[in-house]
């Protein structure tokens, strides 16, 4: 199979579009991981819940996923805050493995409750722009991907401004860098953990919501994003949200071009191999901070 330049560029573009979504999901995961030192296994399940909320608000109220995202953000911020308050706060000092297990349990719980109520049916949102696309220079741009991409970029910029300009954002970053020091300057880290988990969850849920116009909703929808987010987080360095934003784009492009030049089924295993390789040979990730010891 010869590689055509246009087709290659098309697949790179596809990678950038989906990569922005990975960026958003991963930024949420890395914030939680870096600040609370919790490997949040439930991140994908919470994203999937966000997708369902977008689906149902569209189904019953006819709301466009981009609009419902405005409601989904605060709702999932509150949900994340509650999960921290009732579950995670009690184990913040426990071993990292205990934390991994509790979020693993939470995932099993959420996924199977969803499965029970809504079955494994594949659901799709159709919007006014669902089948809209543009041609330019031999390339095809389809509206759902492009719109979701710009929405994700907007969220990314918003996140950056929040973390660098607002006092809560600064407190989150201070807590991530040194929990004890943050406390000594009067930051109430308990509350910050709640905010962080809320923010991380909201980011995942919004990322889920804005792709429902082209990505099918089902109880397993979050899984692939969870695993890819792990890859992105270690690639972009633990706790570094800018690293995650950049890393998401990289993984998106690597994944889509693998699918194009090699084999679609190899996309995910390849990403996993990348993950292991980074963990073992380059524990600092691309942008600093050691993961080991």
């Amino acid at each position: 199979m010869a590689i055509e330049p246009t087709a290659l560029i098309q697949s790179i573009l596809a990678g950038v579009f989906v990569g922005a979504i990975y960026s958003l999901v991963s930024a949420g995961l890395t914030l939680i991981w870096g600040t609370m030192r919790i490997v949040n296994f439930a991140h994908g399940a919470l994203m999937m819940l966000g997708m369902y909320m977008a689906y149902w608000t569209w189904y019953f109220l006819g709301l466009d996923p981009l609009l419902s995202a405005l409601v989904i953000f605060p709702t999932f911020f509150a949900l994340g805050y509650a999960i921290d308050k009732f579950l995670l706060r009690r184990i913040i000092q426990a071993s990292s493995v205990a934390q991994l297990l509790i979020t693993f349990g939470l995932t099993l719980f959420i996924q199977n409750v969803v499965l029970y109520f809504w079955r494994s049916d594949i659901r799709l949102v159709t919007t006014s722009y669902s089948s809209l696309y543009w041609h330019a220079g031999g390339l095809v741009f389809d509206a759902p991907h492009v719109i979701a991409f710009f929405a994700a970029i907007l969220c990314g910029i918003g996140l950056h401004l929040f973390l660098t300009r607002s006092s809560i954002g600064l407190a989150i970053r201070a807590t991530a860098q040194d929990r004890e020091a943050a406390q000594t300057v009067g930051i109430e880290t308990k509350r910050i953990f709640g905010m962080t988990f809320g923010l991380g969850t909201a980011l995942a849920a919004v990322a889920g919501a804005i792709i429902t116009s082209y990505y099918p909703v089902n109880p397993d929808s979050g899984n692939q994003f969870l695993f890819l987010a792990f890859v992105v987080v270690v690639l972009g360095s633990l706790g570094n949200y800018l690293g995650a934003l950049v890393g998401g784009l990289i993984i998106g492009v690597v994944q889509s071009t693998t699918g194009y030049v090699y084999l679609a089924q190899a996309e995910l295993p390849l990403a996993f191999v990348v993950f292991l390789a980074i963990l073992i040979f380059m524990p600092e990730g691309l942008f600093g901070k050691r993961l080991r010891r």
Binding site: L101, F104, G105, T107, L108, N112, L115
Partner: peptide, 15 residues
């Protein structure tokens, strides 16, 4: 399905 959901809850309770 609910059995697996309960299993998830058991995981959390143990921890």
């Amino acid at each position: 399905n609910l059995q697996l959901a309960i299993r998830g809850a058991i995981f959390m309770m143990i921890v």
